[in-house]
Write a protein that binds this DNA or RNA. Structure first.
Length: 170
DNA sequence: TCCGTATTGAACT
DNA sequence: AGTTCAATACGGA
């Protein structure tokens, strides 16, 4: 009985595809982009606690709101596994509101380590809960896209949904 | 300890 | 305008 394996994975079906939310006993621990294939292993036989079902409802609503370009009223509790540095970065990311962007350098300054720009990029890539923790709102200094673990198409798409216009070829 | 990284800014062509 | 290079902080092996 590994506590590590006791994650609950539940699908979230949106217009943009089927996301996969992963919950620990403490809250939302991960969110995966649609993988192209609907993973049936998400539907487990295990009894999902009412607690987690409630979180899942909140997650679903929040995710759909963001995909529609609206600010979610409520987020589920987050159980993000990471170092203190990463958590401080993710916390800073959550302060970026819908439709706004910041650069990696600005995030680095926000957490009091202005030189740690590259490390900030690393922490963004390690973000277990994209979209809800808006790692996609971080651009490079010259408004270039930078990178995105879910694929640059997703980053572009998410920003477009929030009304952010990119200077890409324009 | 060494290597890679979703950076950045400056120098060079 | 595109390319290369060094600086820098952090995480994984």
């Amino acid at each position: 009985m590994n506590p590590k394996n006791s994650f609950f994975e539940l699908p979230i079906v949106t217009r943009a595809g089927q996301f996969l939310a992963r919950y620990s006993e403490k809250g939302l621990a991960g969110l995966d982009f649609p993988a192209g294939r609907a993973s049936p292993r998400a539907a487990k036989k295990e009894i999902v606690r009412a607690k987690i079902r409630a979180w899942h409802r909140v997650t679903e609503t929040a995710l759909k709101n963001i995909l529609a370009g609206r600010k979610p009223k409520k987020l589920p509790p987050l159980d993000l596994a990471g170092t203190e540095f990463q958590k401080s970065v993710w916390n800073a990311l959550r302060k970026i509101s819908i439709g706004k962007t910041k650069s990696y350098g600005e995030i680095a300054e926000a957490i009091g380590k202005p030189k740690a720009v590259r490390a900030v990029g690393g922490a963004c890539g390690a973000n277990p809960v994209p979209v809800l923790v808006p790692c996609h709102r971080v651009l490079a200094a010259n408004k270039k896209l930078g990178g995105f673990s879910g694929g640059l198409d997703w980053k572009r798409s998410l920003l477009a949904r929030e009304g952010v216009s990119l200077p890409s070829a324009g």
